[in-house]
Amino acid sequence: MSIDKETLTPEQSLDVITSMIRQAKGNMQQGSFYFLLWGWTIVVANLGVYVLIKFTTVENPFLMFLITIVAAIISIVYGIRQGNRIAAPTHLDGIYKWVWIGFGITCFIFWFFGKQIGWQITPVIITMCAVPTFISGSLLKFKPLMFGGVAFWISGALIFLTSFENQFLLAAIAVTLGYLIPGYMLKKSN
């Protein structure tokens, strides 16, 4: 684009507008980092709880979920660093970010008041995972993530019907289908 011309015909103006919008289009770039980080964290935590309940007499197997605090800290640090690197965040980047932060806050509330919902935290959260995952797939125009969202909805319903201890095994499978597989596919596609 040359910059010295000050007089434009309407057609030239339209050309400038469309070419610039095209330049900014597709500027949204979200990587697979969070899907892989949280995917592995939740899979390890759930499988850990499942194994501890099923095969040991450990008093509080749910302490396994404390590893999510580490993942949360890594996410915040990574998020701040990445945020500083994006030269022109799009409106969709903003929506993407707030959908996930909102989801994180909702999860925290469910964890905190787990007793009030009869400790049915796992099926509730797995069902809830579907929403940001599906929306992310739609925003990134990446179908595997949308299928991941659907996998969460189906898994969530199935986990409600499952015995308490097996819920953790199913949750690990759900997260593999919902985060890890689409996450690795996203990584490959980037």
Binding site: L8, V16, M20, I21, Q23, K25, N27, H91, D93
Partner: peptide, 17 residues
């Protein structure tokens, strides 16, 4: 109605900042 200013504005409507 200037190429560069119009270009900048077209870019800025497409992004948050």
């Amino acid at each position: 109605h200037s190429q560069l200013r119009l270009g900048v504005m077209s870019l800025l409507i497409s992004v948050d900042s």
